[in-house]
Design a protein around this nucleic acid. Structure first.
Lengths: 152, 152
DNA sequence: AATTATAAAAAGTTTTAACACCTAATTACC
DNA sequence: GGTAATTAGGTGTTAAAACTTTTTATAATT
């Protein structure tokens, strides 16, 4: 369905408005679809992303600020988000010995185990979303998204 | 910048994951950019969208369910969202005489005035986001977004 | 060495969202 | 006409996001 039909607008929108609404609507749509499996694991998409960032460190610790930098949406509550992961034993936190303002974050073994359980589900869902896209379209789409971000 | 550079990932992602992250990140990015001017007017993007929906009725009342249907993100708290607009005198609510379960929502004159003030700002910002896109790219982008939503 | 500035993280507060449940009005059906 | 089912909207509670302020540690300055 075209976006105009979905939001049942009767006045015609400008190209800019239409595109922005389409982007926003589609992103929410996809995010909702993807978040469903996480609910069974009592994990938010955000928490899952933090776990993946920590795993990406391959054993090296990450500071809170590093995690924030890499988050898809960096909000200001990363401390509390990580508190929750710690409470579930998925993450460990220790004060950095070199600079006691910093903290060092590690993913635990249970955290890694959880990720290996979730990864295939996510991969499959991500793939499903793109199932009707050709390789070419995927490239085009990513390039257009990259280009869209250049204007602010 | 490519999305991989932005989130500084060191492990390579699948096409699906990369694209989903790119979409999500870009949408948030754009939404944040667009929401800035609204803050000065003490209005959220959601509230602005509801006002536009009511104006789109061109004098006819809208039910709550109609508004919900047309919202970009239909959440379950539309009642309370509209409460806030009423408190600011931007919207009026009355019980539908034909069916007292239904309510009728109208945008007020101050609501219309506020919209005419905000519209050019939004239009300009929406246009700015697309400034580097050709007409062709805009069409392609919208088509790809539409296609992306077909898979769930 | 004391003073100021900056940086990293945490905590406080207020809004907003999510989810389930509730209430009132209408419709359907016996 | 009385009872169940459905529909439209509202409430309550809890959790998460947004925004702001505070705390503590380090760096810079004088």
């Amino acid at each position: 369905m075209k976006i105009e039909e979905i939001i049942k607008t009767n006045s015609k929108m400008s190209n800019g408005t239409r595109t922005v609404i389409n982007l926003s609507y589609t992103a929410r749509n996809i995010e909702e679809f993807l978040s469903t499996p996480f609910k069974e694991y009592d994990l938010s998409v955000q928490q899952y992303n933090v776990l993946r960032i920590l795993r990406g460190q391959k054993g090296n610790p990450a500071n809170l600020s590093t995690v924030q930098e890499r988050m898809v949406d960096r909000n200001s509550n990363t401390t509390r988000l990580i508190d929750k992961l710690i409470k579930k034993d998925l993450v460990e936190r220790q004060v950095c010995p070199d600079n006691r303002r910093k903290i060092e974050l590690f993913i635990t073994q249970p955290g890694l185990d959880l990720l290996s359980e979730l990864d295939p589900i996510t991969e499959q869902n991500n793939a499903q979303i793109l199932q009707n896209f050709t390789e070419n379209e995927i490239e085009t789409f990513n390039n257009l998204l990259d280009k869209l971000r250049q204007n602010e």
